[in-house]
Design a protein around this nucleic acid. Structure first.
Length: 599
RNA sequence: GGCGCCGUAGCCAAGUGGCUAAGGCAUCGGAUUGCAAAUCCGACAUCCCCGGUUCGAAUCCGGGCGGCGCCUCCA
């Protein structure tokens, strides 16, 4: 096989290569340019969260490489021809294309919500038939593949390197050959082209009507968009064999050149320690009868907290089959994309991640630290964190070392952040440094009493520099690019109702106490928000109020509390705060006023 | 059976030969606050077990135990 001359290594960046099973200095096929190919989804169903791991980490990889001065082209393929798509189309009485379109739309929505916007090309198998057929033909011509009754198979015995990625031998792959076994020369041979059964979608080819095998599309698309040898090929760890092994076999036999230089595989998501990967066999087979009768009501019965509820377990397997495959859009609706992205990036991309919604919420608690700091920045200087201009390329630090201990500390954290990212994109370690920077900024703000307009211009500028550094680094992770979307309409309606209940209770109490000034102030205060109060013999009722009214109601409550506190009526003031807490809203008193936060 | 990965505090998680083992969540002290919230300061780890290599090991090697993946569609 022809040897490829790679560029000089990057001075500090290393990347783990599944092919060599070690971290390697980063070199490129073409100086300054990087071609990245990530195996995307087979769009026969809605995406689940496991489908987002690769896109999120590769989105970071592209951002970080770009930041490091490379020109990156990133391709994610869409498999829109496949048995499962055909089956789904038949079940639902619609075309394969319609199934694909629906799920591609879902996939794109999910990517956008998680901030994955760096993908340059989104090739679909059905748009690349000419390239696929040409590649298969070339393999047949070179005797690496053979035709059998309209099918075309790759002959693994013709590839001396077969198995090098997944570290196996042709003998070691003891598959049964699948349904097409009879036509294969060797059980490990795999289909490049599948003949069409009656009624199936098909394309004309030199071997008759048919469609491509799964693996060949990636070889064809990567060649078309990135060339015969490109830099980084990614995908889930579960794709190493047979998918990526077969891609290598096809492409390297066809071109007599290395296919991809680095193979980067992300770890898989699991529901809990004892479960398989999300969307994995255990979940798919959950409808099998006699699936599981967990835990004998036995002697030792350790009674672990989570180990109980076997009945629920048995049901949840089934649920995940019908609901679990989809549900990502709903999860995003509940949690918000940035929290999910943050959750995924806390762990190194090659690790297994135990996914659960409480785990996302725990991670999100940490995210709030940053959001609060950004609000604090606004209070200090009136600026918007998201509008700050931060460096987009990796250069000398803008932190002027030596002027202030805070800047020195920030410079140290920045250096550690970059070192972590240089070390095989260690986003978890990098995020730790982001927290360090947040602490430095908060402390600086405390020490220099910047809130309440007491800070001198120089201190405010230093504070801003600290925030700019957070933005510079976080943006390479695709975090804090824009303010997180507000909670959805339904959620804000609920919040409005809950807040109004607090208001109405307060007002009723004021009226009982003959404190009509307060009661009337509440009613007058609500009017501009479009909320009308009517006192009836059975009690007061309220109507109106749109999504924008929530903040107004909160402001009113904050005002009521402020008035009560000014009048030393701490009972009322505390009652407001405590009742809001019951509906998940916390009040935060600061130099510049009180703010409300929905948990 | 074959090929791999993993086991760090109550939980999550960096670190993979050498300063006090990052960081987050939770908890407990302190500063601050009318009381809170937020913020800051502080507390909180015999690095799964046993052996070996080494001046020195969470980190390397060997052996256990436990968990997971792939070998069949999969991110």
């Amino acid at each position: 096989m022809e040897n490829i001359q790679l560029s000089e290594p990057h001075p500090s960046l290393t990347i783990y290569n599944t092919l060599t099973k070690q971290k390697e200095p980063f070199r490129t096929v073409q100086p300054g340019k990087v071609g990245v190919y990530l195996c995307g989804p087979t769009v026969y169903d809605k995406a689940h969260i496991g489908h987002m791991v690769g896109p999120v980490i590769f989105d970071c990889i592209k951002r970080y490489l770009t930041y490091s001065g490379y020109e990156v082209t990133w391709v994610v393929n869409i498999t829109d021809v496949d048995d499962k798509l055909i089956n789904k189309a038949n079940e639902r009485g619609i075309s394969m294309l319609e199934v694909a379109e629906e799920n591609i739309a879902d996939y794109n929505f999910n990517l956008a919500a998680l901030g994955v916007d760096q993908i340059d090309h989104f090739p679909r198998a059905t748009d690349c038939m000419g390239d696929i057929i040409a590649l298969v033909q070339s393999l047949v011509d070179e005797q690496y593949a053979y035709e059998a009754e309209g099918d075309v198979f790759f002959d693994v015995t013709k590839d001396g390197d077969y198995g090098k990625l997944s570290n196996r031998t042709v003998e070691g792959t003891h598959g049964d050959g699948g349904g097409a076994a009879a036509r294969k020369r060797n059980a490990a041979d795999f289909a490049l082209w599948k003949s069409a059964k009656p009624g199936e979608p098909s394309w004309d080819s030199p071997w008759g009507k048919g469609r491509p095998g799964w693996h060949i599309e990636c070889s064809a698309m990567s060649k078309k968009l990135l060339g015969e040898t490109f830099d980084i090929h990614g995908g889930g760890l579960d794709l190493v064999f047979p998918h990526h092994e077969n891609e290598i076999a096809q492409s390297e036999c066809c071109h007599d050149k290395p296919f991809a230089v680095y193979w980067a595989h992300n770890g898989l998501l699991r529901r809990d320690a004892a479960a398989g990967k999300i969307g994995g066999r255990a979940e798919r087979d959950a409808s099998e009868p006699g699936a599981s009768a967990p835990s004998e009501p036995g002697v030792s019965a350790p009674s672990e907290p989570g180990a109980s509820a076997p009945g629920e377990e048995a049901v949840s397997g089934k649920m995940s089959r019908s609901k679990g495959a989809g549900g990502l859009a709903e999860l995003i609706e509940r949690q918000g994309g940035e929290r999910i992205r943050f959750f995924l990036l806390r762990t190194h991309y090659r690790s297994t991640v135990l996914f659960s919604e409480p785990a996302i919420e725990e991670a999100a608690t940490g995210l709030e630290t940053f959001y609060r700091l950004f609000k604090r920045y606004t209070r200090v200087g009136g600026g918007d964190f998201y509008a700050l201009t931060a460096p987009t390329t990796r250069g000398a630090s803008s932190l002027t070392v030596g002027n202030d201990p805070a800047l020195d500390a920030a410079e140290t954290a920045r250096t550690k952040f970059l070192a972590a990212m240089d070390d095989d994109f260690n986003t978890g370690g990098a995020i730790g440094e982001l927290f360090e920077l947040a602490k430095i900024a908060n402390k600086y703000c405390d020490d220099h009493k910047l809130e309440g307009g007491a800070g001198d211009a120089g201190s405010v500028a230093t504070f801003e520099l600290l925030l700019t550094t957070i933005k510079e680094l976080a943006n390479t992770l695709g975090l804090f690019l824009q303010a997180p979307a507000e909670t959805g309409g339904a959620a804000s309606d609920e919040l409005l109702a809950a807040a109004m209940e607090v208001v109405m209770t307060l007002r009723a109490e004021a009226r009982i106490a003959k404190n009509f000034a307060t009661a009337d102030a509440i009613r007058d205060g609500l009017k501009p928000l479009g909320i009308v109060i009517e006192d009836r013999p059975t009690g007061a009722e309220w109507t109106g109020g749109g999504p924008d009214a929530v903040d107004g109601v909160m402001q009113l409550l904050i005002q009521i509390r402020a008035d009560a506190r000014a009048a030393k009526d701490f009972a009322t003031g505390d009652a407001v705060r405590d009742r809001l807490k019951e509906i998940g809203v916390t009040l935060e008193d600061r130099a510049g006023g009180t703010e409300w936060v929905k948990a």
